[in-house]
């Protein structure tokens, strides 16, 4: 009985090591960009940049945002990351397939909205159930991929939605 218990314990530990690591390949605070797109960093034209907490704060303090509604939303945001790179149709389909699988397995992100047309795909992801901690958008159109992510403690989706009505 004891031996069986030890075997079960070892099995459970090895399971956690094998799958737990993959699930948490990034840190908890990582963005959508870090979680799923750093593997493409060596691809030609890959270009990522980040607006850190200090820069967001400085722009907030300077009241630099061009619209009061944007300023309100940016008070809820800590960091912003984005990347862009040219993509081929073949790469796009395999990348999307892989992304879908990873997001499903990872379970940190929920697909909030997906729009697919003949020439473009746009997907919005959110992280957090009660409080939205991140909004990420993946766009592929006419041979170009962009991924952007806004990270905060509590991002109000309704404020973001209302933005284009209030401008």
């Amino acid at each position: 009985m004891k031996a069986q218990f030890i075997i079960l314990l070892l099995l459970s530990l090895s399971f956690n090591l094998a799958f737990g690591q993959e699930r948490n390949s990034g840190k908890a605070d990582d963005s959508f960009v870090d979680a799923y797109f750093t593997t493409y960093a060596k691809m030609p034209g890959y270009d990522a940049q980040m607006m850190g907490e200090a820069m967001v704060k400085r722009l907030n303090d300077k009241e630099a945002w061009k619209h009061p509604s944007i300023a309100r939303i940016m008070k809820q945001v800590k960091t912003y990351k984005n990347l862009s790179m040219p993509v081929t149709p073949e790469f796009t389909s395999s990348m999307l397939e892989q992304l879908d699988q990873q997001v499903k397995k990872d379970r940190r992100y929920d697909q909030y909205y997906r729009k697919v047309t003949a020439n473009s795909t746009v997907i919005i992801y959110t992280r957090g159930k009660q409080l939205i901690k991140e909004i990420a958008v993946v766009s592929i159109a006419w041979g170009h991929l962009t991924v952007s992510s806004f990270i905060g403690d509590q991002i109000d989706l309704e404020s973001v939605r209302a933005l284009s009505e209030n401008r």
Partner: peptide
């Protein structure tokens, strides 16, 4: 960031600006 950063990041969903998106590459 590169000087043409904004151009690269523009994937325009609005139909009125889709022409620019199409010729962007």
């Amino acid at each position: 960031p590169q000087p043409n950063e904004i151009e690269k990041h523009m994937v325009i969903d609005d139909l009125k600006h889709q022409f620019l998106s199409m010729i962007q590459p």
